[in-house]
Nucleic acid binder design. Sequence first.
DNA 1: GTCTATAGGAAGATAGAC
DNA 2: GTCTATCTTCCTATAGAC
Lengths: 189, 189
Amino acid sequence: MGRKASIDEADLMARLSAAFREFGFEGATLTVLSRVTGLKRASLYHRFPDGKEQMAREVLQAAGTWLEANVLAPLRDSGSPAERIGRMIGKLDEFYSGGRQACLLNLLSSAHIHEGPFTGLIRQTFEAWISALTMTLVDAGLDEATARARAERGVVLLQGSLVLSRGTGDTRPFREFLKALPQELLGAG
Amino acid sequence: MGRKASIDEADLMARLSAAFREFGFEGATLTVLSRVTGLKRASLYHRFPDGKEQMAREVLQAAGTWLEANVLAPLRDSGSPAERIGRMIGKLDEFYSGGRQACLLNLLSSAHIHEGPFTGLIRQTFEAWISALTMTLVDAGLDEATARARAERGVVLLQGSLVLSRGTGDTRPFREFLKALPQELLGAG
DNA sequence: GTCTATAGGAAGATAGAC
DNA sequence: GTCTATCTTCCTATAGAC
């Protein structure tokens, strides 16, 4: 086996992302990040001159880009609202690995705190998500206020089910959330 | 002003708890814990010989004890289910400072991970909470399965609303969760 | 029961060879 | 673009005076 490691861009970001989602910002030490990527510290600094904070920022931005392309854009796309929500659910299942991986928006919220480096990006991402979902529900015939309340509630249920799944070591809460989501968003209730 | 700090037991635990809830386990360094308590490192080690892990464990246990005494016991108490849930809501508002403080069950979940020192306690606390809430809803006339599903959903909504409140820097999601909780649990929906 | 002082190690980050 | 080696800072933890 050769001495020099190598890793393509996408795989690198995916592995860094997994580490931050598992350990949080402070828990994901350079030793951990080096181990999961197979790159030595200095190699990580070559790619990310501003160090760990840049790694977390780029991972968070990449997650936002993925969310926009795979979840939010399809929500604004063609097809019935029910179809669009169905597509979103498939992507969410993939993104959170069926409830086994946590959400960066939760795990990076405690980093530095009080207007930390990620605060603005986290808030924007939450708002973009709720807005896109709101528009889909308006398309489904709901009035603006109801649509927005349900969109926000969908995001709350997602985050809460991930917290409970991680806390109990059982992905069932997340899986049941996904199953119930169409009814939660579109139901007559 | 004198050189020696002092702090009573309850205040000490409250301040340590606030620090872990704000910064997480790894983020709450001894420097931080020393600052928020006003005690020097060595004084903290006198009280907690096993160090930071013991501090977090005792804080988590104290939170569990507080929850049992102030939230779960009242849920099993006398009064109508609606009254008992109303009392729970008042205590939750107090415990989470109206959405300004996060939940230890979420912030300590990433510590060490994979059967870390808090894993068992976190799972037990979630289960005790859901069980107590389930019993109250059975008392209210719901069948066992519906009661349990709604109890779990109540906990999911709580955790999710706290995550969204923290992520957006706005306590509104938590406040609206509290307001809607009686209907969520007892409503005909 | 608190303090000052410090040990010992792990953290983030950099220099320079290849 | 990756590596080895090193630097500095911060962190956890301990020793011992008061």
